[in-house]
Design a protein around this nucleic acid. Sequence first.
DNA 1: GTCCAGGGAATCA
DNA 2: TGATTCCATGGA
Length: 300
Amino acid sequence: MQQYTLIIEDFFCLKDIFECGQCFRWNENEDGSYTGVFGKNVINVKEEIIEEGKVKVIFQGLVEGKLEEIVKEYFDLKRDYREIRETLKKIDTSMKVGVEYGKGIRILNQELWEMIVSFIISANNNIPRIKGIIERICEEYGDKLILELEGDKKVYYTFPTPEQLKEVKIEDYRRLGAGFRDIRIWETVHIILEGKVNLEELKQEKDTQIVREKLLTLSGVGPKVADCILLFSELKRLEVFPIDVWVRRVMNELYIKEQKEDKVSKKQIEELAKSKFGNLAGIAQQYLFYWEREKKKKAN
DNA sequence: GTCCAGGGAATCA
DNA sequence: TGATTCCATGGA
């Protein structure tokens, strides 16, 4: 068990980070802290706001290695988000509102394999259900981790490796609620196990288009899922702009203003995003996605 | 009962 | 190339 406390002199908000739609395995506790598993680590994070734009963050957890280094990498703490927000806010008033709303966001450096499977499951699905499916797969096939905080022991599970999923059958994924995505998960696991796509090589590849094409050879990975993997995993391509129903909706509402939303082509949105947001399109997308979804939540 | 969700693949024009 | 259709599931 390690502990690490950090003062961040910028906006940094656990709710913004964990509920903006980029991750599926972080859950809020009764005390307002969040606990999550990534790699072989299980970590609890608590924040105390010192003043506007200054926050104390307390990390506690079981990790392989040094907690400080691990969280600095995972939470992308070396990147200057203040500068990113300032750049985006200058684009227009809509973007300014979106950035202000999600100003505590950080784009996490999540494990490539976990993102591949998670976003295959995300196809035509909703976030609460995606989380449930992933959690059940981890409970069945991942490694058990036990975290004890203030005498309270809880059990967590790692995300299973391709090797750990080797003997899993298509019906097993169906039984765990994956629905029609069952065969896609199975096929992708076996593409990796057979070495047809090498994840370590993908992490080394610098050309984003080559990485994207490789990802598209995986079963259940189309353009949108590939873009989510590129943006939200350790591949960290902040310029890619995943377009789902929410992003299409918000881009149409703010900029395109077409009566019939389904008439707006993906290409049109892509080109608009690239020209407006440039190499920060991915982060801009996340501010917009989060803003649009929270707006909808509040309306209900 | 109907609609919708961080879409992809197969099929057809 | 581009448009349609089907695909499980659970909550609203």
